[in-house]
Computed example of a mutant assay.
Amino acid sequence: MRIAVPNKGRLHEPTIELLERAGLHLERTADRQLYADTVDPDVSILFARAADIPEYVRDGAADLGITGLDQAVESGAVVEHVEGTDADGAGDGPGASGDEALVDLLDLGYGSCRLVLAAPEDGEIESVADLEGRTVATEFPAITRSYFETVGVDAEIVTVTGATELTPHVEMADAIVDITSTGTTLKVNRLAIIDEVLESSVRLFARPDVVDDGKVQQVTTAIESVLAAEDKRYLMMNAPTANLAAVKDVLPGLGGPTVMDVEADANGDGMVAVHAVVDEGDVFSTITDLKSVGASGILVTEIERLVE
């Protein structure tokens, strides 16, 4: 089985890190290689341009692909949502048919950005309707055409390959559709957001015919276990048996805390060891509350993977 991943750019390193944390350690043989084996003899990695990954998966060159939702939609894929995952389907991609579907297995939680419509500040363009008969520059022509068809505005779409935000200032376009994460670049170039076209993040995609494959499900579960462990912490502590009910009330836990008997202390008082998974944001207040009900020896550790 092959997994297509970005070969460079801002998505490359976090993708490789995620695969490593999921247990798919890469066996590199060269700096500019096209393929890499993993510790699993049945899984290999294919390095490709982020924009090409949807096509690699649809054509069968790869079984799974990791890239942005924006790239999948721009490629013309019909992005379908799998029930039980956190990923949101994007509906029909521009110009795609059901036979070309990619299944959105997981939202990987990084590479978040928005594809927005923007125009010069204090200019004539203040709404989408103002772009009737005007020119819009973008690196995402398929998404942009689909957007304007949806809103019922006839705009001329000009495809550019970079520096999109400069085109209104050199009279190449009246507005742009471009990617933004924080909006800083748009502000620096004196562009104001008029509308949001698409919200995107990095996703794990598959072809429909491999979704039920055992190895695909194994890889998906491994990656999902890493995502589930993020922002979670494992708490271990000792507590008097008499105070166990109060300790349980403090701990939200993941399905309830685990409780184990321990050897009695010097005074002969009964003690238990209590283990629980809590949200990282709750750790500070939880420790304070635990100490107030007699818990001691509290240990907080990170969780590498969590299979729910």
Rank of each mutant, 00 (worst) to 15 (best):
K8W: 13
D122H: 15
F205A: 00
S181D: 05
S292L: 09
L290Y: 06
I298Y: 11
N189M: 12
L106R: 11
V293Q: 04
K215D: 10
A87K: 06
T288H: 09
S292D: 14
F284G: 00
A228S: 13
A51D: 14
K8V: 04
Y35T: 10
M237F: 10
L46E: 01
A222L: 15
G23Q: 10
E55W: 04
T167L: 04
Y56P: 00
E80C: 04
V103Y: 05
T185K: 09
T144G: 08
L251S: 03
G9T: 03
D88W: 04
S200Q: 05
D212M: 13
A246F: 03
D282I: 01
Q217P: 00
R49F: 12
M172A: 10
I298F: 11
K215W: 08
F284C: 00
D282T: 03
R134P: 00
L18H: 00
G9M: 01
L108S: 01
P120S: 07
V158A: 14
E149K: 09
A87E: 04
M1E: 07
R114W: 07
D289G: 02
V116E: 12
L290R: 08
Y35W: 15
E304H: 14
R28Y: 13
A51Y: 00
E80D: 04
D59T: 14
A72Q: 01
S44T: 14
T180D: 03
R134N: 01
T135G: 02
R233S: 13
G162F: 02
R32S: 11
S112R: 15
L26N: 07
